[in-house]
Design a protein around this nucleic acid. Structure first.
Lengths: 237, 237
DNA sequence: CTTGGATAAATTGGATCCAATATCCACGCA
DNA sequence: TGCGTGGATATTGGATCCAATTTATCCAAG
């Protein structure tokens, strides 16, 4: 697959590739989605220089779809371009984590407030299932996915496509951090309690309470994360 | 400039081009910025198909930087790609306006809350100047720019780059709509009253009141806009 | 031994070329 | 006359090629 003369790249995308290739209609779409996943899930760590030729070889395409994908990821603040020096995966940092949390804390209560009155019994049942699945899940990657789906299920009826897309985007961005925390500290049981309380408030139709709970949930996660990242930075720096 | 055999494109970008060209280091950056401006300011109206060849000729570059720019604009929800059929400027609609307003109403109070305690006397003076400039301004385009700068001045000390970038992006997106309203209804004096009240609350350091005022300010603009767009759609549809 | 500069290698940015796909229109047939 | 089929045309998607810029290397001079 990879060109014979090149040294092996410092990442492994092989499983992402073959599995998803047929789902997309253009190579650019495919590369963009795969790289987004890879960055958010930590396969491509922050600071990694992204050589176009290398990625093209890994994906089995030419440099062009890679370049277009990188431009899209730039607009999503997942990679940075340095003119004539190439693209780099954006670094994670305590400040950036706080930044993303602030955005989540602004968007998610707004989405929930719009969505909650229109939630169906099916939605609530699905949310409950997702909590249960999270209880049983050990893999950090799957865990982030389930958490994301739980939250988005509660917001889904907001009827605001842009708001929902932004919310999902920043939930995914937060995953990049939560994954660290989860790997280091293990699953935090308080988070599940918060999920249950939130779901209960939604069942009761208590919008104000539910919004307060998501806000607290997000800020609690942020505080834990900030502390974790700060000591981590102190150790390595 | 334009190739001799082609029919003239249905838009005019010439003033944007020469003026800004030297500021950018790569053609892609330049094209992206110019097209973003052109879409947000209404020069490229919603629904317009964006022919790559045509744009390339207009900008005096090849199709490739145009393609990269279009991909970035896609990620910012300013254009839509239809595989093998090309890109189109996203349509405006009452729903989309409401969507953007909901996002603004979530983000801006959050940014203001973080920023307000750190606002300096200079910041407040600048904000006051911008209100005065708006009073004297007649051009809708300049008006949107001043409005944007006024708001961003108040949020600037939030110390959250991502949050601020998102906020500015959606303020700009809202301009696309406010411009319509302004052109049709003329300048709405209540908006200036709201700006003054907001600035006063900031001067007093009354965070809660200031946040309430921005929220109301955004929702008031949204209501007016929704009504305007709805009757407009009824007339033309 | 360090430092400066020239030169070579690597990599990106941009242009051109080719292939794949969609649209449009004419034509034939029911 | 209406509809479906088929080919021509236009336009995008992808690959390759060339130029411009940056980074690395090496040698010489202080």
């Amino acid at each position: 697959m990879t060109s014979p003369g090149l040294p092996p790249p410092p990442f492994n995308l092989s499983d992402l590739i073959d599995r998803n290739r047929p789902r997309f209609r253009t190579a650019t779409e495919f590369v963009e989605a795969a790289m987004r996943e890879a960055i958010l899930s930590g396969v491509l760590p922050g600071g990694l220089p992204l050589r176009q030729e290398e990625l093209a070889a890994a994906f089995g395409v030419s440099r062009m779809p890679v370049r277009e994908a990188l431009r899209q990821l730039e607009a999503r603040a997942l990679v940075e371009f340095h003119p004539h020096r190439g693209a780099v995966v954006v670094e994670i940092s305590a400040q950036d984590a706080a930044d993303i949390s602030a955005i989540r804390a602004a968007l998610e209560p707004a989405a929930l407030r719009l969505s909650l009155p229109h939630l169906t019994a099916d939605d609530l049942a699905l949310a409950a299932d997702l909590i249960a699945e999270m209880d049983a899940e050990a893999d950090p990657g799957r865990m982030g996915e389930l958490n994301r789906r739980f939250h988005m299920t509660l917001y889904a009826r907001a009827g605001r496509p842009r708001l929902l897309a932004l919310t999902e985007q920043h939930l995914a961005a937060a995953d990049r951090y939560l994954r660290f925390q989860f790997a280091a500290l293990g699953h935090h049981p308080r988070s599940q309690d918060e999920h249950n309380a939130l779901l209960a408030a939604c069942r009761d139709g208590d919008t104000n309470r539910a919004c307060t709970l998501v806000t607290r949930h997000i800020l609690a996660a942020e505080e834990l994360l900030t502390r974790f990242l700060t000591v981590r930075a102190a150790h390595s720096g």
